[in-house]
Design a protein around this nucleic acid. Structure first.
Lengths: 329, 329
DNA sequence: GTGAAAGCGCTAACAT
DNA sequence: ATGTTAGCGCTTTCAC
């Protein structure tokens, strides 16, 4: 049986409320008593029961994180970031993996929302309406997505795409291809828009090659269409897709970057390990997790702040071996 | 404000205790009243406050999972398995990433232990003494590790190594090398032992090449020592190490499997994507997570069961392109 | 089969 | 500055 606040109070010769105060508002209690309480706490190894505290304060000290797929290194990194930052604020993190299932997402969120002070939704696939409904009665922070009135942290996708296009154009490429991710993905939409603008600015062509899963398999599936498009360089939804693409191209005997240059997005650890090593737009992943927690914590302290609580992170082009000069026609 | 049990009681025209019973012991309440309660619950969207319930039942309905590094695909998979199984039992999962820091591990565990019904410790780096101390006042299940009196799920490392060695010997290899993982890793010790036995059985040689981090970098670092050992085939602590090794070998112009065959352990997604695709011992990862949850749940239902609560999972050799016949001397 | 009352461990008024 | 009281939302005796 773990020690309760009464045990501590008895041992220190004070009342439970004094113990409570000594712990949560130390400056409101006499230094001498505070010391006695501290000693008792120490001796008993007392740790307040957070559930009981939450019952009365309305705050649990827990947050929830919902991700589409933990096996995707991108989300694993974001999770690490969330985790690390939360720990520093003595906050525990519930993690829920929806397995890319939109239906599960809504249900999971509802189940979790009762036990946490707030929720971080990472790349939610749900529609805006659902999201807003959730944000109605829960504190929510979005990662990789915006929705009216909900705070969140996103990447500047447009800018990232501009960097990728500038790089390829400088290498002499005039016909680019874009392999889109999941249709419902906010990122895929914004990357598409950024790309559109960037190619317009540079006066080069862009073929859009459908929507594919954000996976290695997605990339394998996309490869042949990319080749058929006649592009000399391709930008993919993310690194996983790019690596799948690389595999299929290799199997078909198409040389990268000789015949085709490939650019990914994310810079997951695997990208350095690919052969050829993947040129990519690095997204600060743990950073996003960290900031999401900070946004959420701020929201909790000041529930109806009208301050704009939006953050934007920038990608950084990492040039490796999968991009090279366009073959002269 | 979310609905409370009283709201439901009032709406259904019964007492709170009846609502409580209708929800947790349906057969003890009249079918008619049960229906009325159900309707009220539905109408109000009532969800019991688990913290309040936990306060009295002593069970939170939450479990904790501690892993060394979520960015390692192995642990990401185990986490997914835990997650999926827990959800089916309506149990939420706190995830804590220790960042491979032994010191953090003990602290994290203590912090978490108060808010959960039990803890799953995945590949704990802590010593046996610490582990037993923790298991003293918390329900603990170990993954990838055994300790006296603590239930757990492990892989049959010996058997996995036997498969790997048999494969290599069949290919004509007589001089093998082993790249060990972290010194404190239970798995690395047992794989070492299994290897020792296997090579003895087959009458072949084994060079042990130090201890390295369980990472890509670890593999890069190990490569030159492996080559210097004169072995024609190498087995590494895990796939990440094998892939790092592959990279360094490629850089040095050493052909795989022509000059050196390479076998990993885990079968993470990345292994298929390596070039050459990695021969490896597949470990059922999500399975381990699933079973860990089941072990824990069983432990909770029957706190001092004397039943042996140990599980063992078996690896499966997956032969891909990184292993081939030994070069004839 | 159902209700009334007590209390889980804690904090927040309210007294003192 | 400290103690007393009440009560967070729920379950669980114990009556009826």
């Amino acid at each position: 049986m773990p020690a309760t606040i009464r045990d501590v109070a008895r041992l220190a010769g004070v009342s439970p409320s004094t113990v409570s105060r000594a712990l949560s508002m130390p400056e409101m209690v006499n230094a001498a008593t505070r010391a006695r309480v501290a000693a008792a706490v120490e001796q008993l190894g007392y740790q307040p029961n957070r559930a009981a505290r939450g019952l009365i304060t309305g705050r649990t000290g827990n947050i929830g994180l919902v991700v589409p797929d933990l096996a995707n290194p991108f989300f694993a990194s974001v999770t690490k970031g969330v985790q690390a930052r939360a720990r520093r604020s003595d906050t525990a993190v519930f993690v829920a993996d929806t397995d890319e299932d939109v239906t599960a997402e809504v249900g999971l969120v509802r189940a979790l929302s009762k036990q946490v002070d707030g929720l971080i939704l990472c790349s939610p696939r749900s529609g805006d309406a659902d999201l807003c409904a959730i944000a109605q009665d829960t504190n929510v922070v979005l990662v990789n997505r915006t929705a009216a009135g909900i705070p969140g942290i996103t990447y500047d996708n447009e800018e990232g795409m501009r960097q990728a296009v500038a790089h390829l154009v400088a290498l002499g490429h005039r016909r680019l291809a874009w392999v889109g991710g999941p249709v419902t993905s906010w990122s895929t939409q914004h990357r598409g828009i950024g790309l559109e603008n960037a190619v317009a600015d540079h006066g080069v062509e862009l073929s859009r090659v459908g929507h594919f899963g954000p996976t290695y398999e997605g990339g394998m599936a996309a490869a042949d269409q990319v080749v058929a498009s006649g592009a000399t360089a391709v930008i993919t939804y993310n690194d996983l897709v790019a690596i799948g693409l690389l595999a299929r191209l290799h199997a078909r005997g198409i040389s990268v970057p000789g015949d085709l240059s490939v650019v990914g997005v994310d810079d997951i650890a695997m990208s350095r390990m690919a052969r050829p090593a993947l040129t990519t737009v690095r997204l600060p992943k743990q950073e996003a997790g960290r900031i999401a927690v900070e946004l959420l914590l701020a929201l909790l302290d000041d529930p109806d702040s009208t301050v704009d609580t939006r953050g934007t992170l920038h990608g950084e082009l990492i040039v490796r071996d999968s991009t090279g000069p366009a073959a002269s026609p």
